[in-house]
């Protein structure tokens, strides 16, 4: 699966694939992007539906869409999830489910969330996260690309098996300490990577081990085939079997600069 768009001064490409052994229908991550007017720019969300929960794919998609259609970029976004939760319940209502499925659905679906608002004109970004989907900002200055930011987790060792997740049945916001917010500035050519946990942890691990893939991701990743090749390489080199979602955003600080590149 692969999508590519260009919006304002950002080139956005998204790549995803299901766990090895699963079908495409069983992929439970979601991503979404949308241009915004205030501030002028773009919003991107990456959401990882928890495998252990039921109807997580639906919940992940609703969360991603809720973010890109919202104007809220801070913790207050999570206080406005009632419509998404209502939609999730409505999609299940009236559906004849066997006892185990209805009981599991009662527990709700869960997902990790990352949303990034890019203010393209002011060259700023604001990221909002609950759980372990990760944003990595890498610059394109000099021979070695530098990691300017990894958020909300900075090292591969910080990924755990039990991140805090957003539930489709919960009421209200996640606890304050679970909501992570970060802001940063963008320079021409900066690359933002939004990734679900397995691929983010692996990219950070490669970086920590002195085998960074940033340059390859910047210059070579472009087609579903190239993403598949990266995943195949990763599976032989420590990439955990999971659904993978990676959204690459390359920022250009002006249309002129974009053309020159």
């Amino acid at each position: 699966m692969n999508h590519a768009t260009a919006a304002n001064e950002c080139d956005i490409k998204a790549f995803c694939c299901p766990k090895s052994g699963n079908s495409a229908e069983e992929y439970e991550d979601a991503w979404a992007q949308r241009q915004t007017r205030t501030p002028a720019g773009i919003r991107v969300a990456v959401v990882d539906g928890a495998t252990e929960s039921s109807f997580a794919k639906l919940w992940a998609a609703l969360l991603a869409q809720s973010y890109v259609r919202s104007e809220l970029a801070g913790a207050e976004f999570f206080a406005r999830l009632q419509p998404a939760r209502r939609l999730w319940r409505q999609r299940l209502a009236g559906r004849p489910l066997p006892w185990f499925a209805s009981e599991k659905a009662e527990q709700g679906a869960f997902a990790a969330f990352l949303g990034v608002q890019i203010d393209a004109h002011n060259n700023r970004w604001t990221a909002l996260a609950v759980g372990d989907c990760c944003l990595m900002q890498v610059d394109d200055v000099g021979k070695r690309m530098r990691v300017l930011k990894a958020f909300p987790l900075e090292k591969s060792s910080q990924f755990t098996m039990s991140p805090y997740l957003i539930g489709s049945r919960s009421n209200g916001e996640p606890p304050h300490e679970r909501i992570q917010i970060s802001k940063g500035s963008l320079r021409d050519g900066d690359m933002l990577l939004l990734a679900t946990d397995a691929v983010a942890a692996w990219l950070l691990k490669q970086h920590e081990n002195g085998r960074p893939l940033w340059k390859w991701l910047y210059r070579k990743l472009g087609t579903p085939e190239s993403f598949a090749a990266m995943v195949a390489y990763g599976r032989k080199h420590g990439l955990r079997n999971d659904d993978f979602t990676l959204v690459r955003v390359i920022h250009h600080d002006s249309p002129v600069a974009a053309k020159e590149r």
């Binding site: 489910l97 185990f100 009981e103």
Partner: peptide
């Protein structure tokens, strides 16, 4: 165990 393995409308 059934609930743990339940996935949408199947197991």
């Amino acid at each position: 165990l059934s609930i743990r393995c339940a996935k949408s409308d199947s197991i």
